[in-house]
């Protein structure tokens, strides 16, 4: 087996609010390999978003270390492009195309023509090419999210970090976006670290699922979900995994809640 792309060892994360020092995660280990769809799943307060921000380089662990391709993470960078939950991550003063080209321009590694070609290719992949010259405020929630995903993928990051990207969407759009994300993954084979609080979403999207318990977040389990690829959601294997996760998070014997 090859070395993991992303590796966290004994990561304890803390952050301060106005009154308190909170421990978000306690000695969390995880390994993400190239091409994996790695899901961090847990109830609110399990520090999953904080963990993602630490991988993004916005927060340093007070204990333990996080390594990307064998190098410790120091500060944010475009090798770990992030997609957030809310729509304010897009720059309202730039068109859809402007938003997607922006990180390419910041890196100053390509010629103007190449930048535009890459951005248009990325927009085509998320079916937004015809909206290239529209400003974000004219788009629907799902379209804004697709712009954010295109903007992240255009940089061809080592790993794509997604912080509950579909949580603010309506249920139908969310399901649609999940299917599109899987298609993109099939097409491009990127590595993704995806945070969610929805068991259903984790089972639908993940190839491997890390379960965190709450207050503070500790590893509860790590499960495989790759065997579900290509199966219909009505397949009993989905229900079995969903129930198993539910039991691990909330204790056995209770009815699965609508996640």
């Amino acid at each position: 087996m090859t070395a993991p792309l992303l590796e966290a060892r004994g990561v304890t994360l803390q952050y301060k609010t106005a009154q308190h020092l909170l421990t978000a995660t306690y000695r969390v280990d995880l390994e993400v390999h190239r091409g994996e769809r790695f899901i961090i799943l847990g109830p609110s307060g399990c520090g999953k978003t904080t963990l993602l921000k630490a991988v993004g380089g916005f927060l340093e662990p007070v204990e333990g270390r996080i390594m990307l391709a064998g190098r410790p993470i120091r500060g944010p960078g475009p090798d770990r492009m992030m997609v957030f939950q809310d729509f304010e991550q897009l720059m309202p003063w730039k068109t859809v195309l402007g938003n997607v080209t922006f990180p390419l321009r910041v890196k100053r590694a390509w010629k103007a023509r190449e930048i535009k070609e890459r951005a248009m290719a990325a927009l085509e992949k998320v079916h937004l090419a015809e909206f290239a010259h529209v400003y974000p405020h004219m788009l629907s929630g799902g379209m804004k999210m697709r712009v954010a995903i295109a903007r992240a993928l255009v940089m061809e990051p080592e790993i794509l970090l997604m912080d509950e990207p579909f949580a603010a969407l309506d249920a139908l759009t969310r399901r649609h976006m999940q299917r599109e994300l899987l298609e993109l993954w099939r097409m491009l084979g990127f590595t993704m670290l995806f945070v969610t609080h929805s068991i259903e979403e984790a089972v639908t999207l993940g190839s491997r699922i890390l379960l965190l318990s709450a207050h503070p977040g500790q590893v509860r389990a790590e499960l495989n979900a790759g065997h579900l690829d290509g199966r219909d959601a009505a397949d009993p294997a989905f229900g079995a995994l969903t129930r198993h996760i539910h039991d691990l998070l909330f204790g056995e014997g209770r009815e699965p809640a609508n996640a």
């Binding site: 921000k53 993004g56 916005f58 500060g75 944010p76 960078g77 475009p78 770990r80 492009m81 992030m82 957030f84 304010e88 991550q89 720059m91 922006f102 990180p103 910041v106 890196k107």
Partner: peptide, 9 residues
């Protein structure tokens, strides 16, 4: 938006 900006480097 701030985090996006810093994410781009």
């Amino acid at each position: 938006l701030r985090m996006s900006g810093r994410n781009f480097g």
